[in-house]
Write a protein that binds this DNA or RNA. Sequence first.
RNA 1: GGGCCGCUAGCUCAUCGGGUUAGAGCAGGGGACUUUUAAUCCCAAGGUGCCGGGUUCGAGCCCCGGGCGGCCCA
Length: 481
Amino acid sequence: MTEPVPYRADVTATTAEIIRDHAELEDGAETDVVVSIAGRLMLRRDQGKLAFGVLQDSTGRIQLFAMAKSTPDFDGFTGLSIGDWVLVKGIVMNTKRGELSVRVDEWTVLAHAQRSFPDKWHGISDPDIRYRQRYVDLWVTEEARTAFRQRSAIVASIRRWLGERDFIEVETPMLHPIPGGALAKPFVTHHNALDTELYLRIAPELYLKRLVVGGMERVFEIGRVFRNEGMSTRHNPEFTMLELYWAYADHADMMVLTEELVEAAALDVIGSTTIDYDGREADLSTPWRRATMEELILEHAGVEVSLGTPMDELRALCDKFGVEVKDHYGPGKLILEIYEKTTESELWGPIFVTDYPVEVSPLSREHRDRPGYTERFEAIVAGRELCNGFSELTDPAVQRQRFEAQEAEGAAGDDEAMVVDDDYIRALEYGLPGTAGLGIGIDRLIMILTGTTTIRDVVLFPTLRPEQVAATGDVEAPADD
RNA sequence: GGGCCGCUAGCUCAUCGGGUUAGAGCAGGGGACUUUUAAUCCCAAGGUGCCGGGUUCGAGCCCCGGGCGGCCCA
């Protein structure tokens, strides 16, 4: 047992409030304003019969000023460790050198830091420690605090914006009997009571569209999805997705909504539509450019392709560009592969890439003017794939064919292919009006708006290999298998 | 999965053509100091050099295997 800490503390002010309310205080002046503030002691400078400290709370930092003649247990105060939580009560004052301070007239330890805090100047530079011990990183890394505060603000802004437009927020299952709604490998788990396999959702899509069938004309969900795939600076196995569905609207409406939503979030949180990202600028102001996938392939790869292009020609192009293809790939898949290999990484955006082939878009409705293509778009913003949206496929018979085509791909070895979801088809049979859908990667959006190039810097606890430190007492060693 | 790079004290980093006892700052412990700003000064302490093999009279350093991380690629 270590020393007990108080159950509660009476805090009357934050450091930010004090700084805001006393900006004009003259050097050496004292006020009669008494405050109680709490936080961690981040720095301490003992000076004989005086001591200075820096207290940090969730809003900022302020100096503490202690005097041997007036601070109770002065020696105890100067004996505090960096990282200790303290409650300090005293007047607001300014030192002779003009540093706004709280005089330590009373103080209480709220918790002792039993472990040494990181270097007070360099902080933590080891990314592994930053991610594994976020509880320390958040104290010592200003950028981390800022990023997560902004993350919260962005999500709140999106919720508000959608609420103002009569979208209602829902929560659909994360445990799916059939993984669906995206082309991705799921995590598998087991439900004991039902004795059945369940999958962590790879997308909420099919449930949300069931809700449109159920009469929820404008519906959205912000939640975690899980994909059992590799990790990188832009992929975490679990990430946050916004999906929304809008009855009576089509993909063109949805592109307008998308660009307006992103613009609004940027203005709301960043205060600007111009962002610096990875040393380059992007202008998020509406409208964004729209171009078909094939137009963009022509621009960037210099080749003209379409679903009418002979298969051997498409295969030859894939070969030329170094794309690995499988025998069962149709022309739509080949065009997508060419796009991804030659064009996608060249795009900076914001831009809507439109008219994806039916073959690679099993849930999208066929384009009203271009057979074989869909009314689907993805947005590229600051070189990142940000979202995916389309006019939803509403015809149950066609949806069944698409699912079956997917199953055939699965049989051919594609482990990301979809399987038939009979209940979803049953829902469509009850009638789904023309509806537009959208999925936005919230983590990616936050990266773009906050200028962060690693998803791990916008996810509080990114997925890491489990730590295995035996004997140090840091982490229990896992039992041998 | 492949390539490159890294791993030294709680944290940030040194050290070397293989050579007594692996250094420093910060943090932590002692002490000095009545206006500091990463305060300063003095003292003491702090290490399985990621792990396991190998080469060598001698390995933190060279070689092999493994672990973890980063970046790039698939």
